[in-house]
């Protein structure tokens, strides 16, 4: 309704259309503007592609790193399951004491399997593997203790659960020293956490850069359409109406950048998969790198669109407002 002229109808009010139709018209006009913006991108495809490329590649780097970290975590969690506890028994424990201990431990619900390596057997093994061979025969007595290797059940194989089990085992009378061989794993986890944080920082910096780049691109778009915006304001366009196509441009930058990033990540992983296979073959591990699943792709797309929209919002508000007919 007109502000100045009571009773004068403005715009769509004059056509007697129902509320439902008006809602449909609202979406139709939005779709029209969205497609219009897409057409605008196509008309200036070289520069649009460069912007989309910047956005896509900026998302590719953190995404690839993310996939790598996720895979590394998966691999190390596979190793974690195999963590073993080594119990070194007291020298004065008699044979029957040891047998008793083995029987007791075997019954614990936390324990999956146990393996007993007697001191003699350990010395034999050491002779064979160490290469000291004959030198060892000069020893007066066997310096090695009896060892029990305890494998926890999968439920108790995690670092904290295994540590609890270790404490419990240490409480046994016959046990001298217990060792949980997961320290290196914890180090690996620590390292992975550092890498993860690094990825986050890199991602945030890149995202910020992308927002600024898109903001600047949209600013240039707005300035190049200054004349058109002036005319639109003269004939009564609201700021929101003028802003909308630019917001859609930001949306498309984000959407297309996200799709580009997905392609880039897929190609990168495919390229690296053969070298990763070689490495995992060296470690005699059968390991396939997990790529991007659907939900990750959606997340990438959402982040990308969010970046595109915030970039355009950043400049649209200010610069559309600044252009006023004089």
């Amino acid at each position: 309704m007109s502000i100045l002229f009571k009773g004068r109808v403005q715009g769509a009010q004059i056509a007697q259309i129902s509320a439902a139709q008006r809602i449909v018209m609202f979406f139709v006009s939005h779709v029209r503007q969205a497609l219009g913006s897409l057409g605008e991108l196509w008309r200036s495809r070289t520069s649009s592609f460069m912007t989309i490329g910047v956005l896509g590649l900026s998302i590719t780097l953190p995404s690839t790193l993310y996939v790598m970290v996720k895979n590394a975590e998966q691999v190390s969690s596979g190793w974690e399951q195999a963590s073993q506890i080594s119990l070194f028994l007291k020298e004065d424990a008699s044979k029957s004491d040891v047998d008793q201990l083995l029987k007791r431990i075997q019954l614990w619900p936390e324990v999956d399997t146990i393996e007993f390596i007697s001191a003699d057997k350990a010395l034999d093994e050491f002779k064979q593997l160490s290469g000291f061979g004959d030198a060892i025969t000069y020893l007066d007595e066997n310096p090695l203790p009896n060892v029990v290797l305890v494998t926890p059940t999968s439920r108790h194989a995690g670092p904290t659960a295994a540590r609890l089990l270790l404490e419990k085992l240490k409480g046994e009378r016959e046990v001298d020293i217990g060792k949980l061989d997961i320290e290196w794993l914890e180090r690996l986890h620590g390292l992975l956490n550092v890498v993860k944080e690094l990825v986050t920082v890199i991602a945030l910096l890149l995202f910020l850069a992308v927002v600024l780049i898109i903001g600047n691109t949209i600013r240039l778009n707005i300035l190049s359409k200054k004349d058109e915006i002036l005319v639109m304001k003269l004939v009564g366009a609201t700021d929101a109406f003028i802003q909308r196509p630019f917001m859609y441009t930001g949306f498309w930058y984000g959407f297309l950048g996200g799709v580009l990033a997905w392609f880039a990540v897929t190609i990168l992983l495919w390229w690296m998969s053969s070298s990763i296979k070689t490495v995992s073959a060296l470690y005699q591990k059968n390991f396939d790198i997990t790529g991007l699943n659907f939900s990750t792709f959606m997340l990438m797309l959402a982040v990308s669109i969010f970046l595109g929209l915030s970039g355009s919002l950043l400049s649209v508000r200010r610069h559309v407002r600044e252009i006023e007919p004089k």
Binding site: S2, I3, L4, F5, R8, Q10, G11, D227, E228, L230, V231, K233, L234, V235, G236, A237, T238, D239, F241
Partner: peptide, 19 residues
């Protein structure tokens, strides 16, 4: 509200202001 005011005023310019 200015945009809505301008919808009530038809404006014609020497330089036409056409697209």
């Amino acid at each position: 509200q200015i945009a809505y005011i301008r919808r009530d005023i038809g404006m014609i310019f020497q330089s036409h202001q056409l697209l």
